[in-house]
Design a binder for these strands. Sequence first.
DNA 1: ATCCATTTCGTGTCCGCACACGTATTTTTT
DNA 2: AAAAAATACGTGTGCGGACACGAAATGGAT
Lengths: 359, 359
Amino acid sequence: MTPLKDEQLRIRDIAKLANVSTGTVDRVLHGRPGVKQETKEEILKILEEINYIPNLMAKTLASKKTTRFVVLIPDSKDANSYWTQPVLGIHQAVEEISNFRTVIDLYTFDDSLEESFAEMTEKIINEEPDGVIFCPVFHKASQAFIKELKKLEIPFVFIDTDLKNSSNIAYFGQDAFKSGYLAGKLMSYGLKGSGELLILKQVNSLLISRHVENREKGFREFFESHDVSKNYKIFDLDIDLLDMTEPQKSLKTFFSRHKVEGIFVPNSRAFKLAQYMQKQDIKDTLVIGYDLIPDNIKYLESGIISFLIGQRPEEQAYKAIKSLFDYTVLNKEIKKLNYSPIDIITKENIGFYKEFRNE
Amino acid sequence: MTPLKDEQLRIRDIAKLANVSTGTVDRVLHGRPGVKQETKEEILKILEEINYIPNLMAKTLASKKTTRFVVLIPDSKDANSYWTQPVLGIHQAVEEISNFRTVIDLYTFDDSLEESFAEMTEKIINEEPDGVIFCPVFHKASQAFIKELKKLEIPFVFIDTDLKNSSNIAYFGQDAFKSGYLAGKLMSYGLKGSGELLILKQVNSLLISRHVENREKGFREFFESHDVSKNYKIFDLDIDLLDMTEPQKSLKTFFSRHKVEGIFVPNSRAFKLAQYMQKQDIKDTLVIGYDLIPDNIKYLESGIISFLIGQRPEEQAYKAIKSLFDYTVLNKEIKKLNYSPIDIITKENIGFYKEFRNE
DNA sequence: ATCCATTTCGTGTCCGCACACGTATTTTTT
DNA sequence: AAAAAATACGTGTGCGGACACGAAATGGAT
């Protein structure tokens, strides 16, 4: 193991090698003017040769500049919101990078209002941060935002939702299709080889969530690509999972007409269904939902929800920030596409996934 | 969000507050002699009040001292060894902490030879490192090691295996019992409610591995604590999974006498079984194994192994080092008991768990 | 050749802390 | 009471790099 970061050469050493002063080397390092082309090239050559890496400690100590990043994600009104989780990862990241004169401002928007998003992006642009992490749920407003960011040459990272061909430096999120496919697998694995399945969708979802769509596609794809498909019938129901008066009716009707063996809820509100099932005392129905929010966990633990699919939101946020930091401050190469593991959570292992929340 | 690490007070500021010089404050901070009791208390009071946090950058820059940690884990002769994985996490950690004048030496031992372990611990003691991370598989030799470490006041962290009441500052590993329990759940979930099960154990395991034992216990416990238990028969077989000539016989005999529906391999060599099953063209038998080593992954992907249970070895090593660093260098409080999530891996989500290896 | 304006480069200070050294004060010794 | 020895504290320098400022070298115009 590298016993010691082998004696790094300092600016002073480079200066000696090039027969110039440290000031000149410094100018070259920072691309400041006032250096003869000739000597500049000489110095660059040496820098290249010895693979100069500035001492990070001395650098941040001497520099007056503080780097500021902005994170823009949907707000989390209640404790059951998915978006409370990335915030934990942000705090974690802040703790680590704050030593490096790097700060983070958190902006949030109402994910049912595109204007709310647009408004925030405007504010952010005015602040001219050194990097941005955001969740591009609104297509049009995001495009406008990206245009501005590119104009100002501000690097940006996507989180949760990806927007292809956007010159973002990185993306952190899940592969929704494959997570749905996995849900299909888990469903078929637990059933006896046949039955009636239901996909429970959120009606009137203002925000076009590709994730939810893709989860459903993946789910269906699993059954279509396997022999068992003919034994299953997949229904779907659009109900308003936020308002629990209306859904009761359509659910009741559905349950009375079908012997449902499995229900797939491709959004994070499986607990709403679970509430209903508990009231109606419906059992022996396999429920697969998404995200480790408190109420989902509650019904997972009580056995009404069989599986939750997790995507490590804290880790996503944490890594997104760290990668922006690596890119901006440390000039490291970073990986562009970063899919989170698709975690399978059950009553039996949930305890070990909650941990992040307790720290 | 904390916009800026609010202007931290420096030693100089404290000196001014206490009407002394920076040198005196420095002496108090480092517990060096030469300060009148009275003024010492005064300074300590102020330090307490303002919650002084030294500037990490200036500190590491000015300090000549380099902190050295030692990691002692079993060696990994071939690519299929479990222990190749923690090494990746070590590298990750090294990259981050090397900036802070902190280095790591990796020592390995043959986990079939207690002397090999003891020999290494002796070497380590002679080096007098500032912290040790190790895997206390051998009870007696570990106790001796711990005794020395305590004498020298060297903090140590356990990884993989825990040893209770050992004044270790932290432990990173899995809860083996619960992982076995989860395996039981997955097994029962996939079967039709009854059948014959087999637990495949490694015979002659020189090293007393509590993990493997506890996994089996957890597995059995699941069936005992559920109604379904009476429908299942659980057998077990001790075979040498390293030598693939002998096992064939006993396995063959077993398969000929029983209609095995599920096999649980509580160690990391499920691939050996899978190899056999592939040759014999045995299908429709559920196999649950442990650890994401290359050959296990191969048979998971080909469908012979149904589930692998993962425990994030890289993350364990990474976090173990970071926590030792936090404790030693940053004087942070650290959490003692750190259980890794019990990851459920299938053909469908394995792709997202391999990632660490490609970085 | 002289003078001024660029261009090119060297020097010094500071960032916050660690630590060696030196000075002032008090205590002990004889 | 003077000298020696502790004790208590202040000052200065260096860690490696950023940046301001000033000095030297060069070029052009007269």
